[in-house]
Design a protein around this nucleic acid. Sequence first.
DNA 1: TAACTGTTTGCGTGAAACACGGAAATTCAT
DNA 2: ATGAATTTCCGTGTTTCACGCAAACAGTTA
Lengths: 217, 217
Amino acid sequence: MIKIFIVDDHQIVCQGLEALLRDISEIEVVGCASDIPNLMSQIKGHYIHICVINVYETNEEEIEKIKQLKREVPNMNLLILSMSRSKDFILKTLKAGAKGYLTKDADRSELIEAIYTIRGGYDYYAKPITNIILKNYLRETDAEHQLQDQKEKSLSTREVEVLKLFGQSLTNKQIADKLFISVRTVESHKTNVMKKLNLKTTVDLVKFAIKNNIIEI
Amino acid sequence: MIKIFIVDDHQIVCQGLEALLRDISEIEVVGCASDIPNLMSQIKGHYIHICVINVYETNEEEIEKIKQLKREVPNMNLLILSMSRSKDFILKTLKAGAKGYLTKDADRSELIEAIYTIRGGYDYYAKPITNIILKNYLRETDAEHQLQDQKEKSLSTREVEVLKLFGQSLTNKQIADKLFISVRTVESHKTNVMKKLNLKTTVDLVKFAIKNNIIEI
DNA sequence: TAACTGTTTGCGTGAAACACGGAAATTCAT
DNA sequence: ATGAATTTCCGTGTTTCACGCAAACAGTTA
């Protein structure tokens, strides 16, 4: 019996995924959680083979949560389900410890195949993903030449933190007080973010943050 | 027999929702689509009672798609499924023609309840939503008293013009040059807009402009 | 262990943007 | 033609931004 746990923000989707696996005698869906923190509190004491995680946000925060989950429950295999085809994001989830990755085009049979594959000790990546991974691998080994312009700059946790408060319309002073740092540091974080993302104005920064769900609109 | 169509970006989620409704004899899931444009091309000639739409993005674009769908297929009822609890967004979907709205906390039974309710000719809103709608209604009807401070201060054409350029990430200098006015005038327009709308920061201004389609994201 | 990379923290300086208040010229409807 | 709103602009002081620099620290790799 393969014990599965499901993580999805929408309860209906959780139940739906569960329903998809219900009539497979070898698979048992042990439970559902709305997010990774909830998951961790729910699975204490239980042994789970595979956790299917539907990842909606594709930001650094989510990656961080996956890493943390892997640290806390290292023997549980993670199967990521996400709409993102960003090479960057996919590779990050794999690096964070995921054993498989399904895109939005995957269907029930692919989900089941992934579960069996992972249970068998192998990694499973949806077909469109293998290409991406392969290409990236080729490029990375080839990349010693052109490292400088592709450098996939991701934001640090502190930077995201500052960006979040900034998006809540706080002034630099207010952000500084909240994080117990100086105004200059807040400025530094902001300008570093702008440099990393190659943004020129505050407006661009706000747009970026909105697009990436760092701030609410 | 209630004929249902499902719209969700993730194929697995589509299948999951379908599985949730499979063993209800009165409900038939006719098909699935990954988005609204796909839906429209798929349902030509079919009569669908209810379309369950899982909305991931909560922007103006999605609202526009819903409106368009309602125009093209006016007799099909729309049940929105979304994680957003933004009063603004919910009211927009309802205004766009949706007959129901479920939040991420809704489960299978609530989905089924919603389907039956809508089939009966009524609207269905998840419990957390009714509060939001009610509050907003009260505020709107109550607003006749306090019209003077709510005063629908509309923006002048020049102000919108400045705002648009501002939203294209131009500096005040660039805006000034483009409109053949001084930088100070640009500043004035901006601050006047902020005063009119009671906004405090640039971030708020950008958010406002995005919400109101003055600038593109 | 040493070297390297990246994060977090901060400063100096000058330019740009913003807050607040005032004000003249123009348009536009009553 | 008088009043209201719009469009234009300035003075003054504060805040934020751009650009560069750098120390302290953590994690990784050689």
